[in-house]
Structures are given as C-alpha cells and as structure tokens.
C-alpha cells in the first residue's frame, strides 16, 4: 500500500540532528517510520519540530496521492512556519518553543545566523515569552484537526501525547520507564510524560523512542494500516536489555 506519514520528530527519521551525527544517522534505520518501508511504499513528510499547521499544508497538497495516511499529531502551540538557515542549505528546522528558538540563537551545529534570521528567531522566542495566547493556539489546533478529518476521514490521527484523539506515541516511553522500575511522580495536573521530559534527557534516541519501542510502534502501525482505527494495546511495562541510563541521562 502507498502510505503517507505526516508529523514531527516522532516520525522524522531524517531529522537534521541525525544528519550531523553519523551514529544517529545509522540508528535512524531502526525507527518505525523507516522500517515501515519494508512493508509498504512510504512517503514520509514529517519534520522535527514542525507544527500541525505546517504538516496540514503538506497534507493538503499531497494526501490524495496516497492510499492511507498516518498523521502524527504534534502538540499545540508550535511556531506555525519552519525556518531555513542560509548556512545549512535547504534543510528545514521546526521551532517548538522559546527554548528551541534560544537554542538556534546559540549557533548550534553548523548554523551561522544572518542578521535577518536572528531577528526572526528573537521575534519568535519573544512571542512565546510575552504575547502568546494558549486559548487561541488550542482553538486553531482543533480547527486544523477538523480540517484533516474533513479532507480525509480515513486518516489515522495519532497524537504524540495521549489526548482526546487517542493513545499517544509517548505512552510507549512511559511503559518503558515502568519497565525500568521508575515511579513517575507527577505534580497535580502534570502529565507523566512531562515529568519524563523535565527530568530525563534521551541519549542516542531517534524519534524519541528506543529500538524496542520502535518495533512495538511499527507493529501497531502495521495493524492500523490493515485495520483502521488507532487504538493500540500498549503493554503496561516494556522491558529492555539495557538499563535506563543506557538510554537516558538525568537532567541537572
């Protein structure tokens, strides 16, 4: 079958971060989106850090060429556009929030910002700090989901974090943390996955998942392609050959 994948870093195995790291580039071949190519004809439109709006625009242009659509729905509130730096050629970079804008402003990798690129990133960063409207961002996020469903009722909408759309891809991570015997103490109102992201930093993970998790996601993706309706049964505990600190380091 001819499959299209839209989404963010959870599906983008060719993320530019991998481009700058031979090890990560190699590990990209273990991601669910890469492995899916062994079973189906896959076009992967995902981009790390991109917004739902950015994916929606690609989807509007291209979905009709594909038999099935897997849409990894990123979290709300990202910068709608993506950025391109003159120093990194035609690579596109998503901006997830003020921290990532700040990160790019620090000239990481081979990025060398021009004055205009710097002004744009500063404006994007300051927007999040000073002027954002969460209510508006949530509303527009829902509008985009409605639009995807309207254009393509058979699209599989898969959130990165569990929400009203269904089980999120980050649930696999939570099961792994349980498998490592971790208790994720959550402040009231905080999702467990936020605790993981706040306290742990992935080491050598591509698309935020371990190889074991990628295989489980792949299995669930293969099922949903044959039997529409994303509703995976994720084991409560996922066990790995290696301990937690092989995959994550604790943030300071």
């Amino acid at each position: 079958m001819n499959i299209a994948i839209y989404g963010d870093s959870y599906a983008d195995w060719s993320t530019p971060y991998n481009y700058y790291s031979p090890e990560l580039r190699d590990r990209a071949r273990s991601t669910w989106s890469y492995l899916l190519q062994e079973y189906h004809s896959v076009t992967n439109y995902s981009l790390q850090g991109s917004s739902l709006y950015w994916s929606l625009r690609l989807f509007e242009e291209s979905h009709s060429s594909h038999d099935r659509v897997i849409f990894v729905v990123t979290n709300w509130g990202r910068y709608p556009d993506v950025v391109q730096f003159s120093s990194t050629g035609d690579r596109l970079w998503g901006v997830t929030g003020h921290e990532q804008a700040e990160f790019y402003l620090g000239n990481p990798y081979r990025i060398r910002l021009t004055d205009l690129e710097r002004l744009r990133l500063e404006a994007v960063r300051d927007y999040w700090v000073w002027a954002r409207s969460k209510e508006y961002e949530l509303y527009t996020h829902d509008l985009f989901i409605k639009r995807i469903r309207e254009l393509r009722p058979d699209a599989e909408l898969i959130p990165i974090d569990s929400n009203s759309l269904g089980v999120g891809l980050s649930e696999y991570t939570l099961s792994s943390f349980r498998g490592w015997g971790q208790t994720l103490e959550s402040k009231e109102g905080y999702k467990e996955i936020k605790v993981v992201r706040d306290q742990w930093h992935g080491r050598g993970l591509v698309c935020h998942l371990t190889d074991r998790e990628h295989l489980l996601v792949l299995n669930d993706m293969l099922k949903v392609i044959d039997y529409p309706g994303w509703n995976p049964t994720i084991p409560t505990h996922i066990y790995h050959d290696q301990p937690l600190d092989h995959y994550y380091t604790r943030r300071k």
Binding site: Y79, L116, L119, R120, E122, A123, D126, V129, W130, A131
Partner: peptide, 10 residues
C-alpha cells in the same frame, strides 16, 4: 513591542 516585532519579522 513583541507583537510589533512578530509582525515585522516572524
């Protein structure tokens, strides 16, 4: 000013 900069640059 931040909103203004958004309109100009972003």
């Amino acid at each position: 000013s931040v909103v203004r900069d958004w309109y100009v640059w972003a």
